[in-house]
Design a protein around this nucleic acid. Sequence first.
DNA 1: CGCTCTCCAATATGAGCATATTGTTTCTAG
DNA 2: CTAGAAACAATATGCTCATATTGGAGAGCG
Lengths: 208, 208
Amino acid sequence: MATEEYHALRRRQVAEAVERLVAEHGLAAVTIAKAAAEAAVSVGLVQHYFASKDDLLRYAYTQVTERALARAQQRAQELDAHHGSIRRALGESLAERLPLDETRQAEWRVLFAFTARAVDQPILAAVRNQTEAALRAQVAQAITNGKECGEVPPDTDADPAAAGLLAIVEGLSLHAYLDPATMPASVALAELNRALMTVLPGQCRQYD
Amino acid sequence: MATEEYHALRRRQVAEAVERLVAEHGLAAVTIAKAAAEAAVSVGLVQHYFASKDDLLRYAYTQVTERALARAQQRAQELDAHHGSIRRALGESLAERLPLDETRQAEWRVLFAFTARAVDQPILAAVRNQTEAALRAQVAQAITNGKECGEVPPDTDADPAAAGLLAIVEGLSLHAYLDPATMPASVALAELNRALMTVLPGQCRQYD
DNA sequence: CGCTCTCCAATATGAGCATATTGTTTCTAG
DNA sequence: CTAGAAACAATATGCTCATATTGGAGAGCG
């Protein structure tokens, strides 16, 4: 039914307004009234489509993470197609998560705000861990591919290594955002590369 | 004057109550009234000693970070005295920051809650960056020592390397806390060690 | 036509909060 | 000894917010 689509559209419209508010003023500054105003709708509409504020925030978080994940997967496929080294492809894919320009800084603020709240709200933690698992699977796949290719030592356990890389990216992101003087883009990228070198130290064997 | 001491004591008393509240319910749940109740004092007293809620939170954050920093420096000295390898000493010092038991989890929650808020509040960011700088200097010193000793390649730039290690610890901490199934203590420690190996790969030369 | 249900807007309600105000006691300086 | 300042306690104020309530405009339908 088109009514279902319309329903989903409305929810997305409000969720995007929430996203903008979080990016600009932080999660703490989001209220139903402000979200409604930002989306140019009434408070009543927001109430009609979301059972509670928590519901709204959960939905918004899900939207953001799903979009970020989709983009990461899209980008990973693009890079695979170029047949470069896996380390390079993975590196570029991970480097994209670093908040090194205005656009990614805004998105990082949103994702991090929700992550921070996930510490106290199991519902948000679940959303996060689910997306994180998909992301980790993607990185783990790249590492596994690297084993076949010869870039990764055969005794490497792909899943912990992937979890480690994602954690490192997260830590570098936080520092790059909060203290760019100490952790400028150059340092963040260098440190990411250092980490990548330990997981994928080898050269890719050439197949005919 | 003893009146100054008394003043400082009172402030600390309230700040510690705030700390307990943050550890248990998160920063968002802290109110002046609750902080007063937790400290077993009146709202009026809190107002008397703190100009505003922001002032109270800033003070509490400063207290927590300073204590954590002091402990880290204390621990570093202890480890230095044992004349083990620098990598091992640094590793133990950094590993202590990981939220791997109840005590450190509680403290991590407090520190992370403030860090998250620092994203939107420059005043808190300043507190954080100041402590972080001291911590980084400590790690950088260890790395520099490692150069003299031979554990660290001579072309290593100590400060970025130190910043990288601290960022990695932060990322591992976040993941270990939010998703312990994926990032259990064993994996967090292994990944930390992997990072340490890239910065301090060598063996310490023996002197006389 | 009239009934009901969805969709939405406007407003009401009541709780929680930071901060202000006022009152009271306890030092302390002159 | 006493004025007044410091150190509180209790309560008031006024705002913000999530949610509840009410009302109404269309849309489908018998």
